[in-house]
Design a protein around this nucleic acid. Structure first.
Lengths: 271, 271
DNA sequence: CACTTTTTCACCTAAGTGGCAACT
DNA sequence: TAAGTTGCCACTTAGGTGAAAAAG
């Protein structure tokens, strides 16, 4: 039970053989930066048809523009990401998920959580998340409904969140569900902490990007696979609009336990 | 004030240009592992003379065995690490610093904190910490004094703690003090979490190692510089022995505030 | 016995919640 | 006004303290 290696990396837990420290040198510089500047909604999805704004069926998974640069890998299995806690996401989704954004940064709830499969156990991967706008509209919430309230505000600076376990081997990614709890949302356009900047009252779609880090030497030709779970779409808000969404947050987020009723776990409907 | 890059790495804060994600591939495997298995106290310091067990003067800084593998860099400046909070360390040191070790892992207090200078702003470095025994003795605390109580117990498995910001550019290391707060000490020989394993009632010396990661391709020939601050030596204990040390901890560690007296910040001396 | 280690505890820090009043 | 945003609050989780008692 003693780890074979005596090397530990700060915040990422024990460093067993295969668990590796950061791979900076090859990652920096213009080539990768551009490779990581994933196309915005409009450009990226144009070739795939309009976005599924309301998703009645299961999630849509599609590939990014770089995937085609490498041909098929023959009989090799394809990496897959499966959304965890899908039931909870669907509960929110059917009411219209809302995520609070604040100046100081706010986590998402639920957090995006995926289980991985089909990866090359020995290959090294980087897992990224970004959030793109779903459409060109600004919304308002009136009479218990979201309605379009005009054209979208200017797009905020694009940010990419690299999962802190990156890079890791396929074996490690597949060994347990991967959670993006630490990602934070803000409406502060001049944020310097790397938080994801969104416009309030706009609709967004989180995306995950899987980058094969073994190909880092030949970036930006790396294989990049993009995964989209439409049931994770949400409206960015500075204060909750739909009180059914509020109640779902209170009922399911441990940090909001203080707002639950003692007995039945339900709060009296106010007003 | 807006970061130039929109890339953020999970737990390590914003990823500005030059702040890079992990560099795994080149880091794993036998060559580096052996390079990172720094020589134990006895072997490493043999050529430099006996360790300074009690340091009346300023810290001693010396270089590791790999440093000589690369010749001098001509007129280039040499990297330097300067210990922060030296006054506090000296307060502890003059009484004989003690650090508690537990099965579940305990932080150090004070934490090792250094400011960096003289680095190549563009080069990439990894900063490591390990803790080596100062001598071959087991100690006991009797009549308010530490005295030798026999020969040292068998050495615990050697562990190395990689600072979570690693690797980063010289510019980044030099931009603000670097703290090793998250390192944890344990006496659990079968620890699987990568904590640093120590023997209770033995004397230890923390060390910092600066590795030029630009040379990763040719490890283990990399330049490694080792820095030792003798005023950070400490005795590993499972319970504090010297009550003056206990009082210094209570007075200075925010987490121990509950044991401070309300008024004067001093607790009544018990028994 | 003498000495060291383990466990549990009250008390803290640090930070994630939605409510709400004040502000724009 | 009406709609949206901000700051502060009580409450929560999560985890870092030494004390004290219990155990070895």
């Amino acid at each position: 039970k003693v780890p074979l290696s005596g090397i530990m990396r700060g915040s990422s837990g024990p460093l067993v053989p295969g668990r590796v420290p950061p791979a900076g040198a090859l990652f920096a510089g213009p080539p990768l930066l551009s490779a990581l500047t994933f196309p915005p909604h409009g450009a990226a999805e144009a070739s795939l048809g309009p976005p599924v704004t309301r998703a009645p069926g299961p999630s849509l998974t599609w590939r990014g523009p770089f995937e085609t640069l490498h041909g098929g890998r023959g009989e090799e299995e394809e990496p897959k990401l499966c959304l965890e806690s899908r039931d909870l996401w669907m509960e929110f989704h059917k009411h219209g998920t809302e995520m609070v954004i604040t100046k100081s940064g706010r986590r998402m709830f639920p957090p995006l959580k995926v289980s991985c499969s089909g990866m090359d156990t020995a290959a090294r991967y980087i897992l990224l998340m970004d959030i793109v706008s779903v459409d060109d509209c600004r919304y308002k919430f009136q009479r218990h409904r979201w309605t379009v309230a005009g054209k979208a505000d200017p797009e905020a600076p694009r940010r990419v969140y690299i999962h802190p376990d990156s890079p890791a081997t396929g074996r490690q990614w597949m060994s347990k569900a991967v959670t993006f709890t630490k990602l934070k949302l803000t409406n502060n356009l001049s944020d310097t902490r790397g938080f994801t900047i969104l416009n309030s009252m706009h609709k967004y779609q989180p995306r995950l990007h899987l980058v094969e880090a073994s190909d880092l030497l030949r970036l930006p030709l790396s294989t990049v696979r993009t995964f989209v779970f439409t049931e994770t779409q949400f409206m960015a808000v500075t204060a909750y609009q739909n009180e059914q969404v509020t109640q779902l947050k209170i009922d399911n987020n441990p940090f909001a336990k203080g707002f639950r009723d003692a007995g039945n776990g339900r709060r009296e409907k106010r007003q």
